[in-house]
Design a binder for these strands. Structure first.
Length: 516
RNA sequence: GGCCCGUUCGUCUAGUGGUCAGGACACCGGCCUCUCACGUCGGUAACAGGGGUUCAAGUCCCCUACGGGUCACCA
């Protein structure tokens, strides 16, 4: 019997997500329990969205949780490189092999044509999908056009009839008609593979035997199985785990729930408690005990104990569990050490004290003046969440504009935040001072405190996001109608501001022109 | 909308044909106690609905409803 090998394959396109940790945990436990290996691979084939910062943050967060891998971009291994952006040649060769065998073809269609086709299909109430336009180009024409440098993608061929049967470790057989499967792009016009190609090639080359992944992948499983078949490889066992959910049951998302592992770290959750909580999402110990370590989970892990209903990620129960870990598993000394590690450390304190030195009269003023640096969510007085010159809805809209800025401002530093938020004030047609006041209240709970931009940087994006969202909740969360409306209004304001600046620049130049 | 997956207390779950449907979080009440928290005792609360199969269905099958996912040159 071959050794079990599993993997987690995060895409470095954002904050470290608890869902990634959840899937990683199950893959880790499954591999360990069978005496196998668990590896980490970075799926950074999306050149536009992938960043090294995100990759580093994801590795850091998974390690913080106590998850380790036998092979990965940081530790190496015999099947590297473990970063897909460094494996382009491999995918290209495999795509070529598929073209040669007639399982894939070059597609020279323009995005515009694809768009038109899709619209027509939608109008005719058909399932949108590639119409096969380039599938029957002759090999010589295809090769010639590619050689001439014409931009193209590579698509896989898909049977038009019959059904694909997927054997899911948890769900048994799942049948999907081939007619439902699109002729997926395998190689993008930038020469990099899509997930579907890269994932299959790498899982095979890296000897992955079992793929435990989110339920969201079920519908694309036929493509993957088909590719394994085209290559003549044995496919790994597939197992689709239920998705973590928001309280409203939708797929866990940043918009509705904190999803970043860093948020939980900054909120003061213990890594062992968070990991423990993720372990009780869709899974339970045979004896139903709720508190358990990673080692205990590995020892008792059993895929058949995974339940299929999507579990709601419940902050309240996580907090309760975290409390248990704090009071049951830490000595007083260890507790002190954890607190120090968390925020009472020289680094954090050393960045805070300079902000208050000029504002204190006695050292004892420190506590009250900096309390919000050591809190999770704060309770601002709703009566203070106002802006001079704006009505209630105006404030709500302003906070939402800020929320978009908080997401878009990268890196999240004093120097990037200041211009971004000053501009937001300008877009709102407000005096910076009047506008910023509500942000002081939002982030620190008080209308006056340490300098806003430095404070935001120190709190970090995750805590700022949470406090902002909390303030928005107090005032009434944005409706989806408002979402669209406010977004459009923001774009209009940005456009107007850009034009105004352009005009001002032109006016500044104009006087130079001779008036003879 | 097409296709696919799912459905036990509000939430996380136990349950694999015979249980008074159990536990936990949250909530409510009692006790403990210098306050609070912890702890402890107790309470409210669920098999989505309808058909089958069976001596017997939360457990098996079908239909309906509801929820979710997916339909990209993103993963």
């Amino acid at each position: 019997m071959t050794v079990v090998r599993t993997r987690i394959a995060p895409s470095p396109t954002g904050d470290p997500h608890v869902g990634t940790a959840y899937v990683a945990l199950f893959n880790y436990c499954f591999a360990r329990q069978h005496g196998g290996q668990f590896l980490l691979r970075i799926e950074d084939t999306d050149q536009v969205r992938s960043t090294r910062e995100s990759e580093a943050a994801i590795l850091r967060s998974l390690k913080w949780l106590g998850l380790t891998w036998d092979e990965g971009p940081d530790v190496g291994g015999p099947h590297g490189p473990y970063r897909q952006s460094e494996r382009s040649a491999i995918y290209r060769a495999h795509a070529d092999a598929l073209i040669e065998k007639g399982h894939a073809f070059r597609c020279f269609c323009t995005p515009q044509r694809l768009d038109e086709v899709r619209k027509a299909q939608l109008a005719a109430q058909q399932t949108p999908g590639y119409d096969g336009h380039c599938a029957h180009l002759s090999a010589t024409e295809s090769a010639a056009r590619a050689a001439a440098g014409e931009t193209h993608v590579v698509r896989m061929k898909v049977p038009r009839e019959g059904v694909c049967q997927i054997q899911d470790l948890l769900r048994g057989p799942i049948e999907i008609e081939w007619a439902q499967v699109d002729m997926q792009v395998l190689l993008k016009s930038d020469g990099l593979p899509t997930y579907h190609l890269a994932n299959v090639v790498d899982d095979h080359l890296m000897g992955i035997t079992h793929v435990l992944r989110g339920e969201e992948w079920i519908s694309s499983a036929p493509k993957h199985l088909l590719l394994y078949g085209y290559f003549g490889w044995q496919a790994p066992q597939l197992c689709h785990l239920p998705l973590l959910r928001n309280p409203d049951k939708s797929k866990l998302s940043k918009r509705k729930n904190p999803t970043s592992i860093v948020y939980y770290e900054r909120m003061g959750f213990l890594p062992e408690a968070l990991l423990n909580y993720l372990g009780m999402m869709a899974w339970s110990m045979p004896d139903e005990r709720e508190k358990f370590t990673l080692e205990e989970m590995v020892a008792h892990f059993d895929l058949s104990r995974v339940s299929l209903g999507g579990p709601v990620f419940d902050q309240a129960k996580l907090s309760w569990l975290n409390g248990r870990w704090i009071r049951e598993s830490l000595t007083p000394q260890q507790f002190g050490e954890r607190v120090a590690q968390w925020a009472l450390n020289a680094d954090y304190l050393g960045r805070i004290t300079p902000l208050v030195q000029g504002r204190v009269e006695r050292l004892s003023d420190l506590g009250a003046m900096t309390s919000f640096f050591f809190q999770g969510l704060i309770e601002p007085n709703p009566a203070e969440l106002t802006v001079k010159g704006l009505d209630a809805d105006g404030v709500r809209r302003a906070l939402q504009w800020v929320s978009w800025r908080v997401e878009d401002t990268t890196p999240f530093t004093r120097d990037t935040l200041e211009p971004a938020l000053r501009e937001t004030a300008e877009l709102l047609g407000l005096k910076t001072k009047d506008f910023l006041r509500v942000l002081f209240v939002t982030f620190t709970g008080k209308p006056v405190s340490t300098p806003l931009f430095e404070t935001m940087e120190l709190l970090g994006r995750d805590l700022c996001r949470a406090r902002l969202r909390h303030a928005q909740t107090l005032l009434g969360l944005m409706t989806s109608k408002e979402d669209k409306k406010w977004k459009a209004e923001l774009e209009a304001a940005e456009k107007a501001l850009a034009e105004k600046k352009l005009a001002a620049a032109a006016a500044a130049v104009a006087p130079e022109t001779p008036t003879l």
